[in-house]
Every structure is written in C-alpha cells, then in structure tokens.
Design a protein around this nucleic acid. Sequence first.
DNA 1: CTGTTAGCGCGTTCAA
DNA 2: TTGAACGCGCTAACAG
Lengths: 336, 336
Amino acid sequence: MPATSRPTSKDVAQEAGVSQSTVSLVMGGKWTGRVSPATARSVHAAAERLGYRPNPAARNLRLGTTRTVLLMVPTLTAPFFGPVYTGAARVATGHGFGVVVSTWPDDAGTAGGSAEGPFTAPHETIDGILASSLEAAALGEFAGTPAVMLDSGPHGDVPTVDFGVADGMRAIARHLASLGHRRFGHVAAGVDQWTFHARAQALEEVVRDVPGGALLREACEIDVGSAKEAAWRLLARSERPTALVCDDDLIAAGAYKAARARGLAIPDDLSVTGFDDVLLATALEPELTTVRLPAEEMGAQGMTALLELLGGTRPEPRVLPGRLVVRGSTAPPHQG
Amino acid sequence: MPATSRPTSKDVAQEAGVSQSTVSLVMGGKWTGRVSPATARSVHAAAERLGYRPNPAARNLRLGTTRTVLLMVPTLTAPFFGPVYTGAARVATGHGFGVVVSTWPDDAGTAGGSAEGPFTAPHETIDGILASSLEAAALGEFAGTPAVMLDSGPHGDVPTVDFGVADGMRAIARHLASLGHRRFGHVAAGVDQWTFHARAQALEEVVRDVPGGALLREACEIDVGSAKEAAWRLLARSERPTALVCDDDLIAAGAYKAARARGLAIPDDLSVTGFDDVLLATALEPELTTVRLPAEEMGAQGMTALLELLGGTRPEPRVLPGRLVVRGSTAPPHQG
DNA sequence: CTGTTAGCGCGTTCAA
DNA sequence: TTGAACGCGCTAACAG
C-alpha cells in the first residue's frame, strides 16, 4: 500500500474495523437508523485521520452523476460573465454542486491538430449545461444533456432565462424622446444574437411612435475601434443624430471617442447611451446613461432552473427586468 | 437495451462482431500490429454508426487521468483572465486536453449552507491546476495535484510563470523621469499579491535614483470609486505630484476622474499611467500610457509548463516581459 | 444493525 | 490476431 496514493473507502473500513458499505453509508450521510451512532463516529474519525475523500470518478461511474454543471459562454473577455458565474456558483454550492466555465469550442481553436477523438470536450463529465448568449446558429450541440439557455431568447422547448432587453431599450428611447430628441443614431452590434435583434426592434418601435422621429443605424463589432468608426459614420450624415443609442457600454466608449474626434461635447452637443452597465460605464467621463442588467441574478436564476430540470420538473421561462440608470451622458438636444 | 442510454464499448463490440478489448485497442489508437486493419476499420465504422463515445468516468477510474486541467482565478470579473484562458485552452486542445475555469472557493460563498463534505470542489476530477494570481496566503491547498502558478511570483518549488512586472514598472518610471517628472504619486492596489509588491518596489528603486525624486503613495481597492478617492488624496497633498503611477488600468480610470474633479487636464497638468493594457486603456480619453502584459502568452506558457510537469519533467520558471505602450496620458510636467 | 456481493464501463493483462 | 477475465473505487441490493 504505497503512501503516495490516496486512501480508499476500503482503507477507511479497515482503519475503522467495519466494512466498505458501512463507510459508504456513513460518508453518504444516509446512515440514520441503519448504523449505530458509535460506529458512525468511528468511521468519521478514521476518515478524518486518513484524510479520506471519495474518488469522484468511481462515484460518477456508479451514480451516473457528477454534481458539476458547465457554464458555457461565447468568450471570457466580456465583463458580463463574471457576475453570471458568481450568481450561478452561489446557488450551485448551496446545493452541493460545482460550476466550471468553458467557452464554445471554436474559441480555443478546434484546429488544434491532434485529438481527433471526442476526448477534448468536457461533455458527459457534467450533469447539465448553462448555455449563455448563444449565436442564433448553435443548437442541439449537447445532445441529451439537460440544458438551460441564458440570454438567448425564446428557444424551442428548452428552458430559458432572459433579460427584458426590449423593455430596457424602450426605457432608453423614451428617456431620450422625453428629453426632446428626434433624430436617433443606433450604433448596433453586428452580432447574430437574440439580444441584439430584440434591442434593435424595440428601438425601432419607439422611434416610429415619436412625432418626427428618425432612426439611422450603423453596425460594428463589439470593440472600441470598430464602434468609433460606426459612430463616426453616423455623425457624418447630413441630418446628424442628436442622440447615439449604443448596443453595449463598450460600444458607447467608441461613440465617446468619435464625438470627441468631431469636437462634439457630451451631453451638450450629443447624448450617448449604453447597455449593460458594466464597470466601464462609470469609468467614462461623463458617466454613461445605460440599462443595468442583473447579470448575477441571471446566473442564479439559471442555476435554479437547471437544478429544477435535473430534479425532473420543467422550469418556467424567466424574464429579468433591466433598469434604466440615468447618468451624465444624456441631456436635451442643443437646438430643439 | 434502452435507446436512451449512450452506447458502450460492449455495444460497439457486438455491432462490429468483435470483443470489447479489440474495441478498446482500436479506439485507443494503439492497435497497429495487433489488430488487422480490416477489423479496425469495421470497429471504427461501428463506433461511428452508433455515435459511440467512451465514458469519461470509467476511463478516469481505470486510467487515473482525466485529460482536463483546471484554471483557478481569484475572480472572473477581471478582464485579464479572458486572454489567459484563451492561451491555455489553445495549447491544451492541441494536446487533447480540456480546460475548465473556476474561482477560489470563497468567491462563490462557501457559506452555501449544505454540502459540508468535500464534494463541492472539482478536485481530483482534474489532472492539474493552473493557479493564477494567488493571494500570498493561499498555498498547498491542492495537496498532491500537479500545479503551475501564474502571476504569483517565485514560489517554493512549484513551477511558475510570471510577468516581468518589475521591468515594466521601471520602464514606466524612467519614461516619466525622462519627461522631467520628479514628484510621483503611486496609486497602489491594496491587494496582497506578489505582482503589486513587485510593482511598488520597482517604482521605489527608480524614484530613489532620480535626482530630487519624491514618491507619495495611497492604497485603494481595484475599482474606480476607491481609486478616485486615493488619487484625490494624493492630489490634495501640498507638494502635489505631477505624475500618477497606477497599479492597474482600472485604477488609472479612477485617477482620471479625480483629476477632472480637481480641474486638472491630462496630460498637460498631470500625467497618468496604468498597467496591464486592457480594453479600458484605449477607451479612456486621452488614451492611457501603460504596460502591455502578454496575458494570452502567459496562459499558453503556463499550460505548456503544466503539460511538461504532467509528463514528468520539472519545467523551468518562466518570465514574460511586458512592453511599455506610450499613449496620450503622459507629457512633460507643466512647470519643471 | 452490519457484512457480502454484484456491477457501473473501461483498459489491460494472459491464454488461446 | 483475438477473446476471456480481472479490477479501478464506489454504491445499492440483499443476506444475516
């Protein structure tokens, strides 16, 4: 018995002078009324002494369950996913589950070279999947694994948790309209995700109902440089917008730069709004009017739904409302 | 044989008309010279047809290996870890390994309630750990699991990958000194991590060698509000610093706000520098002079080192140099 | 109340 | 070149 390898339940049994099954019962916590308190104590003591910890692989093999769920995100670089993870992990640990994070395969370059086989993906080493911000394309990828979709819009018959982005966008647009704005520029994320489609549509609806309302749109990548160019194009139009509605706080940062480059002061000459309310929103000058999305709550609700799903009941779709946060980047337009 | 459960190697064997062991050999890729090419083909075909994929739990139990490594980070909210993950995942998949991310337990609130047992942590369901940005306190946590420490400084006998933060900070300080600055303010991260201790020390060294050099310091949390307050305190000193050296780009954002609140223009009245060169650095106005740290490279090198470690050889400590990126936030001091 | 037994799916001897 | 048998560590029947 080499001291290098960790102790097994058999070792604990021997140490405590009982059988493996007794150890299993005691460690599993379901011994009440089946094992005498005295032996239970001695088993615990032996386990403690040996530093015993059950082998998860064996456990998994036997039980078919791993008490681990996977949070899949498109990319780790977006500041949005930190809170989502925190929320999910909080409720997970409360139920004895662990959470691991991974990105969609192509992010890490599936063109790795070796590893043709299906060994790379952590599939099936987990009980369920929390899939966040899916591209409209991806789907069914995880055949048979219980999944909850986050921030991906209504989706067939799989349970979902979404933000009320349409309401959020409407709140922004109405805020701007009530300030007196009529000519809106939409700096749109050119990403094929439900949330951005929903934002665009909600904005259109509101502007359509504004007397004399006009909406211009330019698409960009979600990065500062690309956003700056898109905003620049918008500001170059003959009928220049007096307000730039950005699909994301980061895009708003690009809009700030475009405004500055054209000599436009925010909010006096141009109002700018963001979306998400990440750290960046208060790092900018002036601070950004945006919509706060309860990201941590989404993680928590998503995990709750997944736990229900694993428990056998189909969770209801959930929608989490955003909240308009008015800061210094919006004001009445310069000249009516 | 319920259609719901996934096919096993036994099913494949039956389908192909061979024995389990043959399937195992073929799927394991080590059949050359032991199984006839014809049967190998038929096994592959059968596996394909059935959609067979080996059960990772059984594999792990038998092999004692899971081909998965864990990247542990203090928090997911820092934009720094995205690239680290990307780099690590890239080389991992190239070697048939998967990467999952998790945070240090207390982040998710170990005060979950239930789950006393040691089941929560994904320990031992992984082959190795990439531990990033450890607090000086944490250590040995992972007993026996091969680990590489990232961005945690020299550390006993465990392999490390670090940034050349001291050189980076020296580059910043010399840049400022050559511009003519003499009175430096250090807006320091009040976090007990090696990297910040190293930064502070390097800055002190350079300032000590500057004729007439003076160094003031205020500590803060790594968030905009706290950084703003610390910077504000520095700017309130009688001998006001002409340059604020910030431990982090986010802290620099706070310094920007403090400067603005005091009516100081950057860079004319005050130079500001950051560290890390994250997205935020170019979102600010003016863009931030900072030190770019090759985060993705750190992930890649760390994974390479871990793979070596798992292969049985002790990797050399690695140091990745940062690079000074001069942008618009630094200039000669107003009045010598 | 406790011990014995069987088997989860796989990789690897050992014989044939 | 292939197949039968064994055991990784664990849990859940079933005996005692």
